[in-house]
């Protein structure tokens, strides 16, 4: 990789605004699914070193208090992963909102996690794609640490990725103990390509 990815202030602002619109759509879908009001934050857009990110992921592994679902997306020369990290304490409240009776077993927790991940990831990825005129295809969601270990996932991409653009959205649900983080990670090549795509939005 010769060209190092960077973001100008305008580019960061543009990704933030695009995300803002996309996450609004995702929140609307979740709000309708659960019958709640989703509090929308200001999204964080940053270029991060993959090594830093690995440490964050490592700390998730073996952490009994969070669950994470990862879903790839690809289209028009842009590829990335959406990672949804859930605080396990949220499950009880989501279960109540979705009318699951009694205590949840592992299987039901998984089903719920997938439902929410599908809604949030899907709407957000399509929302971003829609604004950039890209039709993203999504892979099936994978629960991290369940169907694959985080170390495997990281080793896979070890050499390909040095730096990445990370968009971080923290969703909370009003009056409920529900909290999740959605991380969108784009490959280096994708960011270069996207920077070209958004340049038309930034023209005066």
């Amino acid at each position: 990789m010769n060209e190092q990815i960077t973001l100008s202030e305008d580019e960061r602002d543009c990704y933030q605004e695009i995300t803002n619109v996309a996450m609004g759509k995702a929140a609307d879908r979740l709000a309708r699914l659960l019958g709640v009001y989703v509090v929308l934050p200001i999204p964080n857009v940053n270029i991060i070193e993959i090594n830093e990110f690995k440490m964050t992921l490592k700390s998730l592994e073996g952490n009994a208090t969070v669950s994470a679902v990862c879903q790839g997306f690809i289209g028009a020369g842009i590829a990335g992963e959406a990672l949804l990290i859930f605080n396990d304490a949220s499950f009880t409240d989501i279960a109540k909102l979705l009318d699951y009776p009694g205590n949840l077993d592992k299987h039901e927790e998984l089903e719920m996690l997938m439902d929410v991940a599908n809604v949030l990831n899907g709407a957000c990825i399509q929302g971003i794609g829609g604004q950039l005129d890209i039709d993203f295809s999504q892979s099936h969601p994978v629960v991290l640490g369940q169907h694959c270990s985080i170390s495997d996932l990281l080793n896979d991409k070890q050499n390909a990725w040095q730096r990445t653009m990370a968009i971080e959205i923290n969703y909370t649900i009003e009056d409920h103990n529900i909290n999740c983080d959605l991380l969108l990670l784009f490959t280096e090549d994708s960011v270069l390509h996207m920077n070209r795509l958004i340049s038309f939005l930034l023209e005066d």
Binding site: N20, V21, A22, M23, G24, K25, D28, A31, Y37, L40
Partner: peptide, 25 residues
């Protein structure tokens, strides 16, 4: 003018005195 298109958000701003709600983009 907002990307927050939840029905609840639209109701709230109208209650707070906004005359209308326009979706982004």
């Amino acid at each position: 003018v907002s990307g927050d298109i939840q029905p609840e958000a639209q109701e709230r701003v109208k209650k707070l005195g906004a005359i209308d709600f326009i979706k982004k983009p």
